[in-house]
């Protein structure tokens, strides 16, 4: 029942994830952050088997950090996505595969383009302008097909995101609660409030 969205715009990438931590039919927590900032301009939204998700996300986070320490250079979004995909593809044919789906992306300062990668637990990698994981895909992808434009500014991007979330609230039988939204652009990564569009100051 988890949902995550990713949208690229003119010079940014938007990520949105639901905040429910569910076990069976019970919501155990309603402020779970299912995203990780894995570089100065890099974000990863993850969903899947509870346990695997955090374990794998932290594994990716620490390895990307290690690369940066060793090489004094961070991996670019395309390389980070490629490495992460490879880990999942290798894991798929192991004794206990990770069951984690990802939206990985960010702003590449070297060529000043926003990039978004759709990755699933099989190690499938798609380079996409907008994407969704979970049941949200069945509701939001057509909305994104209709309204997405490659040269959108941040406000238009947030508007599209609101359209998608509204569609879920209207047609999806499960109430997912609030959404965590992050923006990755040339200035780095920041969390924003979906309703107001204002930056969220970490407590």
């Amino acid at each position: 029942m988890e949902v995550s969205f990713g949208i690229t715009g003119k010079d940014f990438v938007l990520f949105a994830s639901d905040t429910s931590a569910a076990r069976s039919i019970v919501r155990m927590k309603s402020n779970e952050d299912k995203q990780k900032v894995i570089g100065k301009h890099l974000v990863m939204a993850y969903s899947g088997e509870p346990g695997d998700t955090v374990q794998f996300a932290e594994y990716v986070e620490r390895n990307l950090r290690l690369y940066q320490i060793r090489n004094h250079l961070p991996l670019r979004p395309s390389s980070a996505a490629s490495w992460t995909r490879n880990q999942l593809a290798t894991s798929l044919r192991s004794r206990k595969p990770y069951s984690v789906n990802l939206l990985l992306g960010g702003f590449d300062p070297t060529n000043t383009t926003p990039e978004l990668y759709w990755i699933d637990y099989l190690g499938t990698l798609g380079v996409v302008p907008y994407a969704a994981h979970g049941y949200g895909a069945y509701f939001a992808l057509s909305t994104m097909d209709r309204w997405h434009k490659p040269d959108m500014n941040l406000e238009e991007g947030l508007d599209l995101l609101r359209k998608c979330v509204d569609e879920l609230e209207k047609r999806f039988i499960v109430n997912l609660g609030e959404f965590t939204v992050r923006v990755a652009d040339k200035d780095g990564v920041r969390q924003v409030n979906l309703k107001s569009g204002e930056a969220v100051v970490p407590v």
Binding site: R85, N86, L88, A89, L92, D120, L122, G123, T124, L125, G126
Partner: peptide, 8 residues
Amino acid sequence: GLASDTIT
């Protein structure tokens, strides 16, 4: 075929 294996 399987997209993951296409890349691998």
